[in-house]
Structure formats: structure tokens, C-alpha cells
């Protein structure tokens, strides 16, 4: 019993001496009060030492510190990781979109005598099961022989979400023939597995 008390008192005296010695080393700044707080915690731990040993006699406190700091760094890395994953997903989606656009432009331009000036694609949300399916597709096509400035740009619109739209605008009076548009529309809906009933053509 006397031995335990002796060791305890030596511990307290040594830690207080060491910490007051370390305080000389501290820079005189605003940091000093934070460091003093932590030093106070450590003195407290040393004073409570025997009680800790009685309560849990297998050095669990150090394990505690390790597990808490491990938890902290795990949280930090999870945060960094989620950022990276989000960015990767965005990049992947934009790359995918870009490829589909190139593909559509290539197919349409190689098969028909038209020029695709703009492609707008809306994809299915990444959270859902059918991720990556084309929800909406708008094509702006012009005649290849015309100069770009004079191009009238009719829009071939393929809309998956609206089931009942299947009308062909009758007042289609520009040089792009209705049949050509219909062909393009059929072609695209076949390739990309979109129901043809959901295809809409308008100017």
C-alpha cells in the first residue's frame, strides 16, 4: 500500500515538474492557453491514475486514445473519399454524355445528308436502377449544304417521359423534309432502345 502511494506521489511530482519545464519552451502567443489546457488534462490523468488502475486494470486508456484518434482520422479520410467519389461520378457522367453525343452526331451525319449543330441529353438519375438511360434527347439539325448562319434549325425531340405525345407538326415548311426527320427519329430510337411512340418532331 505504501509502495503504491509512494509511486503515485513520485508520478505527480515528476509530471508537474516536467510540464512546468515544458511551459518555458512554449511560445508566447495565443496558443499558450490551449496548450495549458491540455497540460492540465494530463496532470489530471496522472492524479487520477490509481483510480483508473483500480477500475480497469489492463491499460485501456491508451487504447481509448488510439481508438478515438483512429476514429478521427477515419472520419477525415471518409470526408476526403466522398469528395473524390463525387467528383469521379461527375466526371464519369460527363464523359458518358460526351460519348453518347459523339455517337449520335456520327451516326446521324454519316447516314443522312444533314449537319447536327447541337445535342442536348438528359440522363436518368444515378441513384435509380436504370441509371444512364436517356430520358430526353434534343437534336438540332441543319442542312449540310447551307452555310451555318443561314441554317434554320429544326429540333428533333425524343422524349421518353411523355408517353402520349406522338404528333407530327403539319406546318413543317422548311427544307428539312418530314420523312427525313422521321427516318432520323426512327433510327435513333432503334439504336438507343427508346420507344418510337415517345418520339416527337417539332420545329
Amino acid at each position: 500500500m505504501i509502495e503504491i502511494i509512494k509511486g503515485w506521489i513520485i508520478n505527480i511530482v515528476t509530471i508537474i515538474l516536467i510540464l512546468s519545464f515544458l511551459e518555458i519552451l512554449l511560445p508566447d502567443s495565443k496558443m499558450k492557453k490551449y496548450i495549458n489546457l491540455i497540460l492540465g488534462f494530463i496532470v489530471m490523468l496522472v492524479i487520477l491514475g490509481p483510480i483508473i488502475n483500480v477500475l480497469n486494470n489492463n491499460g485501456e486508456l491508451q487504447q481509448d486514445v488510439f481508438s478515438i484518434s483512429g476514429q478521427l482520422s477515419k472520419n477525415e479520410y471518409a470526408f476526403i473519399n466522398s469528395n473524390i467519389e463525387n467528383r469521379q461520378e461527375e466526371q464519369l457522367a460527363s464523359l458518358y454524355k460526351e460519348r453518347i453525343k459523339q455517337d449520335i452526331v456520327y451516326r446521324v451525319e454519316s447516314r443522312y445528308d444533314v449537319k447536327v449543330t447541337e445535342v442536348y441529353i438528359e440522363l436518368e438519375d444515378s441513384k435509380k436502377e436504370e441509371m444512364g438511360e436517356i430520358k430526353k434527347l434534343e437534336l438540332s439539325v441543319g442542312n449540310k449544304n447551307y452555310q451555318l448562319d443561314e441554317d434554320t434549325i429544326p429540333i428533333v425531340k425524343i422524349d421518353v417521359s411523355n408517353e402520349d405525345i406522338n404528333e407530327i407538326d403539319s406546318n413543317d415548311v422548311d427544307d428539312m423534309s418530314v420523312s427525313l426527320k422521321k427516318k432520323i427519329k426512327e433510327d435513333i430510337s432503334n439504336i438507343y432502345n427508346i420507344n418510337e411512340n415517345n418520339v416527337e418532331i417539332m420545329n
Binding site: 490551449y34 489546457l37 490523468l45 486508456l61 481509448d64 484518434s69 478521427l72
Partner: peptide, 23 residues
């Protein structure tokens, strides 16, 4: 600097807290 000090000090702080709760 303060944040880095806090990151280092937090485990000590939390272990003291756990200890007091255990007491």
C-alpha cells in the same frame, strides 16, 4: 495551427471524459 492542435488534443480530452463518466 489551432485546428491541428485540437485534432491532437481531442483524443486526450475524450479519454478524460470517458474516464470521468466511468468513475
Amino acid at each position: 495551427g489551432k485546428i491541428l492542435i485540437m485534432v491532437l488534443a481531442l483524443p486526450i480530452l475524450l479519454s478524460v471524459l470517458n474516464l470521468i463518466i466511468k468513475l
